[in-house]
């Protein structure tokens, strides 16, 4: 690992277009080693797309993404898979493999990538399950789990290969307050106990304020604001204010672009 620099991920002048919609325009983000970095933004700003770009599930139109000194776009398939082993990713709905039990789901990367004996795999898997508090659910099937449990299992699976970077895609969506609290605590604990770096994509302002060291707010394909959650709350920018305080109308308009209301009601727009 390159310890000389504090910057783990550097995204420079990133452009990305999907279909006719330009999602990113000259995006610049720096993610520091050992920190929890939150990427926030209204729905549809491309937060998940950004994660896909960082892990090269997608390729940018322009600009560079450098992860720990490695230019992501220059990797071939073999190097890409080796590169991805450094990541653990928690998908929005957990993305557990539905035909495998909880235990086998967590064991899955170990069985695929290593030739460890069964006893050792069992040991590692139970340790990880214990860390997320679900050792007792080892024999259950994913369909029997609640949303919060599924996400915790997925977190155990994301950690099982001891990654350097943990990525969370909307980890708080659709959870009850207790499960949410559990996940928030786990995110913090994992980051500090394992000495890894975490990237968290979310729009749950409260939870992010509780857990993130640094946040980026993306709007209109660019970084609208960055800094600690406190700094973002006290900003003067209208966009940031609207987002952080959850105001219905503001720079991000309540109304989706539409023809003139009165004229549409009178049917004049049809002519």
């Amino acid at each position: 690992m390159n310890d000389a620099t504090d910057n783990l991920i550097e995204i420079r002048d990133l452009d990305y277009t999907r279909g006719r919609r330009q999602i990113f325009r000259g995006l610049n983000i720096t993610i520091k080693r050992g920190q929890i970095t939150a990427i926030m933004g209204p729905s549809g700003t491309g937060k998940t797309t950004l994660l896909s770009l960082i892990t090269r599930q997608l390729r940018p139109d322009r600009g560079s993404i450098v992860v720990d000194g490695i230019d992501v776009s220059a990797l071939n398939q073999k190097e890409l898979y080796r590169f991805r082993r450094r990541f653990g990713m928690l998908f929005q709905n957990g993305a557990l493999l539905t035909d495998l039990s909880v235990f086998e789901n967590v064991a899955f990367p170990l069985r695929e990538h290593t030739k460890l004996p069964n006893r050792l795999i069992r040991h590692i898997v139970l340790t990880k399950l214990h860390a997320v508090g679900l050792r007792g659910a080892a024999d259950m099937m994913p369909s029997e789990l609640s949303g919060g449990m599924a996400r915790r299992i997925a977190l155990a699976r994301a950690m099982v290969m001891d990654p350097d970077i943990l990525i969370y895609d909307e980890p708080f969506v659709g959870l009850d307050p207790i499960s949410m609290g559990v996940i928030v605590r786990l995110v913090r604990q994992m980051n500090d106990a394992l000495g890894i770096s975490s990237i968290l994509v979310s729009h749950d302002v409260q939870e992010i304020a509780a857990v993130a060291d640094c946040s980026y707010l993306i709007a209109d394909g660019k970084v609208a604001a960055s800094g600690s959650p406190d700094e973002l709350s006290n900003t003067s920018s209208e966009v940031v204010k609207q987002f952080m305080h959850g105001m219905a109308d503001g720079p991000v308009a309540f109304h989706y672009a539409a023809p003139n209301y009165a004229e549409q009601l009178l049917g004049r727009d049809v002519e």
Binding site: Q57, F91, A154
Partner: peptide, 22 residues
Amino acid sequence: GLMKATDQLSAMEMMAISPMQR
């Protein structure tokens, strides 16, 4: 199709496991 819709294939990709092979 459902594995794709529920991100299971992407999750495999991210675990550096080829969905093609697995």
